[in-house]
Write a protein that binds this DNA or RNA. Sequence first.
DNA 1: GTAACTGCAAAATATTTGCATCCTT
DNA 2: AAGGATGCAAATATTTTGCAGTTAC
Lengths: 140, 140
Amino acid sequence: MMEQKIDELLKKNHLSITGGRRKILELFLQQDGALSHSDIERRAGEKFDRVTVYRTLQTFLEKGLIHSIPTSDNSIRYALCKDDCSGGQHHDDHVHFICNACGTTVCLEGVTVPSIALPDGYVTEQVEMLISGVCKSCNH
Amino acid sequence: MMEQKIDELLKKNHLSITGGRRKILELFLQQDGALSHSDIERRAGEKFDRVTVYRTLQTFLEKGLIHSIPTSDNSIRYALCKDDCSGGQHHDDHVHFICNACGTTVCLEGVTVPSIALPDGYVTEQVEMLISGVCKSCNH
DNA sequence: GTAACTGCAAAATATTTGCATCCTT
DNA sequence: AAGGATGCAAATATTTTGCAGTTAC
């Protein structure tokens, strides 16, 4: 079932189905949060090359399969796009949350970014909102 | 006059006054926007070492003289804190703006981040808001 | 005078590129 | 069969660390 979903996703984005891409997509699907490059390398075991991870993430980004979440600690995380934001254009106005306790990054799909009034002359094209704090699991 | 402001800032943050720190602070004061590590290296001429820039930025961050602004393109920018957020704790809830045309990053001091309702169990500690689009100067 | 800052060298990491080979369609 | 994806080697770029010399207070 997971297999099928993976292949379907790849096909839908006009990508050929290969072992590496399957594996990386699987990692994203297996969990709710976002993954950094090193997360992926670590979790994938010694399966494949660093370089393949770079190239695969780049491809996924371009195709709009994943989006990147900038964090203040210099480590970019990537997360699956829920809706289709194909072609590299993302209009996903959802909020990202980073837990200061466990480090997990998730997309809060339900929470939408409020619209903001900018000073005269400024035009908004994209809004990125990043909240850090304590997540559900760590807040017992 | 700039000189005095610089030294004052350093003193206020319990930092000794050195040439490198003066120069880097000057760069920040000379302009409104945010600077990346490479911006600083480039603008400082061949004056001082890469390593000094790393260490100075780190120190400024810790003292709360500057804060970091994560961007989606993996390049962290730094900007002066207007109010005192000493000790590394920043509660500056202002919005950052990146111009897609000229690349300039500025802090929109006047625009405050709206409070957001998170799902049950989540606790907000800090909010980072990053808007990209077209800035005042590029939008003629 | 002492503690802290700087510059240099070098180590450790991270990212990119070229190319030959293998795999997908 | 053809184009694209992968792995390896190596070139680049980035960041960190150690240490000796210098500077600020």
